[in-house]
């Protein structure tokens, strides 16, 4: 696999959306290519950053209780 092809598939690799065969091909390329591995680490880190940043918001406990009352 060339770096270009790896780059094209990086989003889907990070999102775990590749087939097993394609994911293995990307994994093998990453293990032999420090540059693409750095890029992969960065993309994974960015995805985690978005997740953790937005996950900070939780429904207020009073609202949860209010809903429980309404729905029961």
């Amino acid at each position: 696999m060339r770096c270009e092809e790896c780059s094209d598939k990086l989003d889907r690799f990070v999102d775990r959306e590749l087939s097993d065969t394609e994911a293995l091909q990307v994994q093998l390329h990453l293990e032999g290519c420090p540059e693409c591995m750095d890029h992969y680490d960065f993309e994974s880190h960015l995805k985690r950053l978005v997740k953790h940043s937005c996950e900070c918001d939780k429904a207020p406990e009073a609202f949860r209780e209010k809903l429980r009352q309404i729905l029961s």
Binding site: A59, F63, R68
Partner: peptide, 18 residues
């Protein structure tokens, strides 16, 4: 049903807030 639905409250609230 309501109890199971409420386990997803944080997801819905976050989505609605965003």
């Amino acid at each position: 049903f309501a109890e199971e639905a409420l386990t997803h409250l944080d997801t819905l609230y976050r989505g609605a807030l965003r």
